[in-house]
Amino acid sequence: MSQRWELNGLLQRRLWIVTGKGGVGKTTIAAALGMMASRQGLKTLLVETHGLSHLAELFEVPEVGYEPKSFKNGLSLIRLDPEAAFEEYVLRQIKFQFLYNAVFNNKYVKHFIDAAPGLAELLTIGKIWSLVEDEARKGKKPEFDLVIVDAPSTGHSLSLLTVPQVVVDAVRVGPLKNNAQEILALIRDPLKTLTWVVTLPEEMPVNEAVEMEEKLENQAKVAVGPIVLNSLWPQVLGKDSLQELKKAKIENPMVHLYRQRVDQSDFYREKLQERLKKRQILELPLIYQQKSPIRIAEALCEAMRTQLMGVKP
């Protein structure tokens, strides 16, 4: 029996991490999830972890920086930047801006972050942690009910989620180790953190989703939420119509290609279901009726919501 998710249960988490192979539509799904959460009344923060501001472009709003910016009812956006995170983190520890400036001039910081393996990932996940937990630690109500991260593609997402453990193992004492432990406590708490794996009905994305699901669970030890199967071929021809076309011997290249696409979608959907038996898979069609990215995200949001609301008695 596969695991079933219910919208309200999902929304009780504090952190969603959206991951998957490059090109599967992570950013669009992250946007759709943001719409879904904010429409249920949650104050939601979307987090960009790439250099470019794809989410701002999707929502047709000006680029944002390192400060969360609200741009729509209940929806805010932030773009993470390892250099700014480095400054923020060091300042928290040493408290004096002048000292920071004296020691870490910009040129040096950039080289250091670029060259130290894993440091950019550590700073990113550290900042995500503080976005989720900062107020709670001070006994205040959190600014955001839910933080949704548009994470990098598979391998780099995994680094993001495993780097705190590396630090815990490598550093013996001190605030850095404590911080890494706090990050682990958040991302490994299944009641607080969930990952969403996005994939497509194609060979490599399916393989990578299966691999990722396994690694998230066993290597990073984070909870895996629903699997999102994006861009299924739209079945515009019903069974009856296909039957009739066949009977009337209407077999032109267009109908032929249509059947091929449907078959491919079905094949990989079944493959994914078979290999991820215990997971719930949300099936989303390729949205061709809409052109603008924001409308596409809205359509996907509706499709996911319907599947997560279940059938009402």
Partner: peptide, 10 residues
Amino acid sequence: AFDKIAGFEF
């Protein structure tokens, strides 16, 4: 500064 953040041993 580094000592404070990461510990001297690190």
